[in-house]
Simulated assay, not measured.
Amino acid sequence: MIDLAMNAYWREGPAEVSLNSICQRAGVAKPSLYREFGDEDGLTAAVLQAYADAVLSQVLRIVTGPESFDQKVEDLIRYASEDALSDNGCLYVKMQAATHRFGEKTQALIAAIDAGAEEAYAALLTDARRTGHAPESIPTRLGARYMMSQITLALVLRAAGEEPLLVRDLLTLALSVFPSDKQDRH
């Protein structure tokens, strides 16, 4: 049920898929869904958690991994612009954009994922400062939010059907505010 709901929400958008539709696709009655998840909020929270475990964890591994800053940026660009998982955009981004439509459990999970991502990106930029990749003039939290926003925009563009090469070029340009090892740092 969770995989079916996750794929439906991801492909069609969470606002476009009703609980009735999920039940029909799964071949279950609403009472069965309520027994398993408590309510629709329980289902959407379970779906978002499954998505976080399956997909967002890959992004977190890129951000927190041992690779160089340049490699992490390249891997993030590749993920957002070229990875097949990004063809439908990002379910988390879609759910975040519609936070007000969800119940307390799902809203709390969206907030927790957002806070965790911001912490990871802030740590990335703190480390990047030590190697000269993040200018001191960019406050850490602002830089973290900026990176997250640019990746979010790339995923929104992918979901809208933009060409991956254009998305890659736009994201590369947006993240060029962080110097690479190849750029001259005078």
Rank of each mutant, 00 (worst) to 15 (best):
D3T: 08
N7E: 13
N7I: 05
A8F: 11
A8C: 12
Y9Q: 11
R11M: 15
R11P: 14
E12S: 06
E16S: 15
E16F: 12
N20R: 07
I22N: 06
C23M: 05
Q24T: 07
Q24A: 07
G27F: 05
V28D: 07
K30S: 13
P31R: 08
S32N: 03
L33M: 13
L33D: 08
R35K: 10
D39R: 00
G42Y: 03
G42M: 01
L48S: 07
Q49N: 01
Y51A: 02
Y51Q: 02
D53S: 09
L56S: 08
R61W: 00
R61V: 00
R61H: 02
G65S: 02
G65R: 04
P66I: 14
E67K: 09
V73Y: 11
L76H: 02
R78P: 09
R78K: 14
D83L: 01
A84R: 15
S86C: 11
N88V: 03
G89M: 00
G89P: 00
C90R: 00
Y92P: 00
Y92V: 00
V93Q: 13
Q96H: 13
A97T: 02
T99P: 00
H100K: 09
H100W: 07
F102T: 06
E104I: 06
K105D: 01
T106M: 03
A111N: 04
A111K: 06
A112M: 10
I113H: 09
D114Y: 13
G116N: 13
A117W: 11
E118D: 05
E119P: 02
A120P: 13
Y121K: 02
Y121H: 09
A122H: 01
L124E: 06
D127K: 11
A128P: 08
R130M: 14
S137L: 15
T140M: 10
R141E: 08
R141G: 05
A144C: 01
A144S: 02
M148G: 15
I151W: 03
T152N: 09
T152V: 06
L153Y: 11
L155F: 07
E163K: 13
P164E: 10
P164A: 12
V167Q: 13
D169M: 14
L170H: 12
S176L: 02
S176E: 03
V177N: 08
S180H: 14
K182F: 12
D184W: 13
R185Y: 09
R185K: 14
